[in-house]
Amino acid sequence: MREISVRRRACLLLAALTAASPVLSQTNRAIRVLVPGPAGSGMDAYLRAVSPAVSAKIGNPLVIENLPGAGGTLATAQAARASNDGHTLLIVSSNHVINPSLYKSLPYDVINDFSPVTIVGTVPMVMVASPGLAARTIPELIVQMKAKPGEFNFGSLGVGTVLHLAGAAFNIEAGVSTNHVPYKDASSLIADLANGQIQIAYLALPSVAQLVKAGRIKAMGVTNAQRAPAMPDVPAIAEFVPGYAMDAWIALLAPKGMALAQSKKYFEAFKEAMSDSAAKEALSAQGMIPILMPPEKVRGFMQEELAKQTALAHRVGLTAQ
């Protein structure tokens, strides 16, 4: 009888520990996180900053797999086909909801083929200008653009990117006409901007902060509705162009059908990880503004963003290929 009692207590203790353990830790199986971009990209840098704390929280290692190409659709398509057992996650940017306007036949539905986990936060974009540009402020720039319609060029990292649409939206809201010049890489864009080949450009804050500080280029305004904490002295474009706002957000998704309870556990793990001191320091260096939206609200947010970006792409005249 005593042996049976001991065994029963042991089983009850094991059951209690299993119930209290974090996400999937009893399997110790790695969690794949697919990244639709190269190593060193904003999404990749975010994951590498928080993954140690997330792994400690859930009890499973995170394995980051970079699958760049085709506007991020390669990694996204693979995630859509993956099992919904909780061992695959996908990180995406705002481009996720722009892609339906660029590609006629995506092999997935950007909303309905995924289980939402969280909107992590936004990485501010900055309108930057050539150091030789006469305009020092957004109002001065608008006056010059209106005086010389079609003579100003703005650079971005490709047609249909959120950076491109940030510039296109500025044209619309400010009532100006400028020419879009797409680049394949940031180094070429910045070189042309610095020497005056193009007058302005739209880039993520982390990629321009040191260049602005060094005086190689100048920051005109951030595209978020409010000023960015990492660049508090740089105004928001919205301060001079009411109604203008363009966010570059980052989200975590999972294959369709993953249980909501699982999504919530991942949400809590990433939320806690972002309060880790080392992660906070790394994210602050990137200029990230945390949002940490719970999974129940993500689908509605993404539906609104899809409608917004689709309407903007139509106004800009983007044609799906």
Rank of each mutant, 00 (worst) to 15 (best):
M1I: 06
V6I: 15
R9D: 12
A10G: 03
C11H: 04
C11F: 05
C11N: 04
A15V: 09
I31F: 08
V35G: 07
P38G: 09
A39H: 08
D44I: 00
A45G: 07
S55T: 05
K57A: 14
G59H: 01
I64M: 00
G71I: 07
A79G: 05
H87V: 02
L90E: 05
S93T: 05
S94K: 05
V97D: 01
I98S: 02
S101K: 12
L102W: 09
S105Q: 14
S105H: 15
L106F: 05
I111T: 04
N112W: 11
S115M: 12
T118Y: 05
P124Q: 00
V128C: 00
L133M: 01
L133D: 00
T137G: 08
I142N: 06
I142S: 08
E151H: 11
F152H: 06
F154I: 03
G155E: 00
L157I: 13
G158L: 08
L165Q: 09
A166V: 06
A168Q: 15
E173C: 14
A174Q: 07
G175H: 02
T178F: 01
H180F: 14
A191S: 14
D192T: 07
L193D: 11
G196I: 01
G196P: 08
Q197K: 15
I198K: 02
A204F: 06
L205S: 12
S207M: 14
M220P: 00
A225E: 13
R227N: 02
E239D: 15
Y244T: 09
A245G: 09
A245S: 14
P255I: 03
P255G: 10
P255C: 05
Y266W: 13
M274E: 15
S277P: 08
A279W: 01
K280C: 07
M288I: 05
V298C: 11
M302E: 15
E305Q: 15
A313R: 10
V316H: 11
A320N: 07
